[in-house]
């Protein structure tokens, strides 16, 4: 473990995972908000909104994430000139976060939609019968119950998102996979220890995340 006793190397490692953490947070919040909106669109009575939601899911769920991240960089930034920060790292970070959010939102949308299907039709009828509008029925009665039903799958999506955020390395951000590549290039004699430390760091955070979501899912389950 000589590699990690070097302060500079440790810094590369920590910075790499800090980017992963930030990408996961930004991408996760974006994907959750977008995903819930898309799910609401897909169950709405307005055909245009339903079509938009369906098109979004079909487009982004079936496009490789690497392509989406490349498009964010070469399409949005290089070609269309969308610059999100003067700092090159921050710019790449936000471009990556957008790509992760639009991609992951498709999966969040489908998870929430399957959650909506677990809510008995009578719940919506009762809400409409006391005079709630479509929007109130959805936000006060349906989505809170649907959300609680899909906490465990949302946890899986979050875990996938965290690992997927390494793909932002392809547009130059020094996140964990790029950090690992750099350390391996400089320390060819310690490939396996470096690899194990990086893989182990992911496992160290993600295994408890999985259990935490399982626990939450049980705790928040709606009793019927």
């Amino acid at each position: 473990m000589d590699v990690f006793s070097d302060a500079l190397n440790r810094d590369v490692y920590l910075t790499g995972f800090l980017w992963i953490l930030k990408l996961t947070l930004a991408g996760g919040v974006g994907a959750l908000v977008l995903g819930v909106l898309l799910a609401a669109m897909r169950v709405s009575p307005v055909p245009v909104l339903r079509g938009f939601g369906t098109a979004w899911v079909n487009t982004f769920r079936n496009t490789p994430l690497t392509l989406i991240i490349f498009f964010c960089y070469f399409g949005l930034f290089s070609t269309l000139g969308l610059s999100l920060s003067d700092d090159i790292n921050l710019n790449n970070f936000w471009l990556g976060a957008i790509g992760l959010a639009v991609y992951t939102a498709a999966f969040v949308c489908e998870a929430i939609r399957s959650g909506i299907n677990t809510v008995p039709a009578g719940q919506a009828e009762a809400a409409r019968a006391i005079g709630m509008t479509f929007r109130q029925t959805l936000t006060i009665v349906i989505l809170p119950q649907a959300g609680r039903a899909v906490i465990a799958p949302l946890g899986s999506i979050l875990i996938a998102l965290c690992k997927n955020s390494t793909i932002v390395g392809t547009i130059g951000l020094m996140e964990s996979s790029n950090a690992m590549k750099e350390l391996i290039n400089a320390n060819g004699d310690a490939v396996i220890p470096i690899f194990l430390v990086f893989a182990g760091t992911f496992a160290l955070f993600l295994i408890p995340t999985g259990y935490a979501f399982g626990w939450l899912a049980n705790r928040l389950a709606v009793k019927r």
Binding site: P120, G122, Q123, E125, A126, A127, A129, V141, Q145, V222, K223, R224
Partner: peptide, 8 residues
């Protein structure tokens, strides 16, 4: 309703 439909 027949099935009560209280908000669970």
């Amino acid at each position: 309703f027949q099935s009560f439909n209280l908000f669970a």
